[in-house]
Computed example of a mutant assay.
Amino acid sequence: MNNYPPKVGGVELHISALARRLADRGHTVTVITLDNATSSGTEDGVRVVRLKGTPSIGGVLAFPWPGAGNRIRKVLRESGADVVSTHTRFFPMSYLGVRAARRLGLPAIHTEHGSDFVRGVSSLVAVASKAVDWTMGRAVLRGAGRVLAISDASRGFVRRLANVDGHVFHNAIDAGFFAEAAPQVPAHPTHLVYVGRVVAGKGWQRVVDVAEALHPKLPDLHVHFVGDGAQRPLLEQSVAATAHPERFTVHGYLDAEGIRGILAGGVLLNPTELAEGFQTTLLEAVAAGAAIVSTPVAAAEYLRGQGASVRTVAADDRQAWIEATEQALAEPLETVSPRLLESMDWSGRTDDFLREAGSASPRGRRS
């Protein structure tokens, strides 16, 4: 895969959590990734092989240097791999991983984290990304012996792009860890939270706007921004320009313990307009006892259908955002059912992955 911790993001967290869980169960796990700044080694029982690549575009997309395919096949042979797992169709490492599996006669299982073509970018980037999807992305999806899609929307996109039937494989979290922070008695939310990259399309501006609209009615309302990104300077400027900048805190990146403490007893605002997969932040919020107001992305719709305290609002409906957030703050937080918590945990999802991997078949050896 292209990215792995210490790089931070939803896909990176998904891959590292799954790798650790598989290693904990006694499986030999090797991750091959691109990273010019971090050395290879064994981390939490997982062997991590880091190859050199080009500087990344937007902190996300990098390309391996020539010869990476040979190096990947060598690592796979040395490790005695019996299945290859790749993630996200447009990453060059996914293409090389699927191709290496085919040449070695190994089954490849691909997990698709996107639900549409890239959004929130310039017209030039949008055209280029679609060209990559229709060529390399389609080749990855068609070359894998098994395709997992982390939401119904992702499965539909896989079908449209490559005419391949994917199997829904929802994202997961350490549900028990986040549930430890949940309020133990019925209480009203006390604050607003934004967790995510501070980049175009994620909607952080909407959070500032909603907070400003509610502050005259709710003078004690505080807003927490967790995350970093290219637009963080703009966020800090926007906060400084509000009538009450002291009611906002821009934290930057926080670890899981810091995030769960801020989510607990709050309302998570998720105004993203991007083509999201299945956001773990929403799972973490529910487990930590937070309410959610979100655009109708896959994870929000799923959790709402499961009875969680989730309201969905169109991204461009300012008044609806203000009203939905005010309603969420006015209602007592709900206790999360044990069944829902269990369904969000990595324990069961690891079982699912092993079953899916066992059913993946090789596409055939190529020289």
Rank of each mutant, 00 (worst) to 15 (best):
A128R: 07
L161A: 02
A144T: 00
K130S: 10
I150Q: 05
D165L: 07
A131N: 01
V164D: 03
K130H: 13
G156K: 13
R155H: 05
A162S: 06
N171F: 09
M136H: 04
E180Q: 15
R146T: 04
A139H: 13
A131F: 08
S129G: 02
V164H: 00
V127G: 10
D165Y: 04
V168G: 08
D174Y: 07
G166D: 08
G166L: 03
N171Y: 07
G137T: 06
G166T: 01
R142Q: 14
D152K: 14
F169P: 00
F157H: 11
H170Y: 13
G176Y: 04
I173K: 01
G137H: 07
A149T: 01
W134N: 12
L148F: 15
N171G: 07
T135A: 12
I173Q: 01
W134F: 12
F177W: 09
I150N: 15
I173S: 01
T135C: 08
N171I: 07
G137K: 06
G143Y: 06
F157R: 05
V147N: 08
S129P: 00
G143N: 14
M136L: 15
D165H: 12
L161C: 03
R155Y: 08
A128V: 12
G156S: 10
A162N: 02
S154Y: 07
W134R: 15
G156D: 14
A139G: 04
W134D: 14
R138P: 10
G137R: 06
L148G: 04
R155G: 09
F157I: 02
V127A: 15
V168C: 10
A144M: 08
A175N: 01
S154L: 05
V127N: 11
W134S: 09
R155I: 04
V164G: 00
A175D: 04
R146Y: 11
A179D: 06
A144H: 08
L141C: 09
E180L: 14
G156N: 13
F178Q: 00
R159D: 14
S151E: 14
L161Q: 04
V132P: 00
F178W: 02
M136F: 11
R160N: 14
V147R: 11
A153E: 15
A128I: 09
V147C: 10
L161V: 03
M136C: 05
R160C: 11
K130M: 12
L148D: 05
R142S: 02
R146D: 07
D165Q: 13
A179P: 01
D152G: 13
V127Y: 12
G176Q: 12
G145W: 13
G176R: 09
F169G: 03
V158K: 02
A179E: 07
G143A: 11
F169D: 07
D174W: 07
F177H: 13
K130Q: 14
A139V: 01
L141A: 12
V168T: 11
V132C: 04
G145D: 05
G156P: 00
G156Y: 02
R160I: 09
